[in-house]
């Protein structure tokens, strides 16, 4: 059962996304800000992280950079989630090392296909 870490500061958004993903067979961990997201990533070693960008003091991009900088968590694919649909946000997300970018409100089928695409190479590497 793939493990997904959701880093999101809005409680309802976090809850609903967690429950909808659980229904698709993922085991979900949640964090409500950047620092706790980084420590959760180190502790739980999830297969994938869904990272909100507007997180308050430490934004999702910075959290992503830190997770990518640590050898223990560098390989975890991260999908950025943001309510801004700006092309520059997308560009920035890719620059800091995100594997994907999704706008909120989340379109679940589209997010699921991105999650699957991200998990596939991990599986391949695990087998190899």
């Amino acid at each position: 059962m793939p493990k997904i870490l959701i880093v999101e500061d809005n409680e309802m958004n976090r809850d609903v996304l967690a429950r909808r993903l659980q229904r698709h067979g993922f085991s979900i961990y949640c964090a409500e800000d950047g620092p706790s997201g980084i420590s959760a990533a180190e502790r739980e070693r999830p297969d994938l992280i869904l990272m909100d960008i507007a997180l308050g003091e430490m934004d999702g991009w910075e959290a992503t950079q830190r997770i990518k900088a640590s050898p223990a968590t560098a390989d975890i694919p991260i999908i950025a989630l943001t309510a801004h649909a700006l092309a520059s946000d997308r560009q920035r997300s890719i620059e800091v090392g995100c594997a994907g970018f999704e706008t909120k409100p989340v379109d679940l089928p589209r997010l699921l296909s991105k999650i699957e695409a991200c998990l596939a190479p991990t599986n391949y590497r695990a087998i190899a």
Binding site: V16, L17, R23, A83, P105, L108
Partner: peptide
């Protein structure tokens, strides 16, 4: 518009969840 999307996210998410 941006602020409207956050609560709307919850409405859409929960109603879809309940629907499923």
């Amino acid at each position: 518009s941006h602020e409207l999307r956050t609560p709307l996210s919850a409405i859409l998410g929960y109603s879809k969840l309940m629907l499923e």
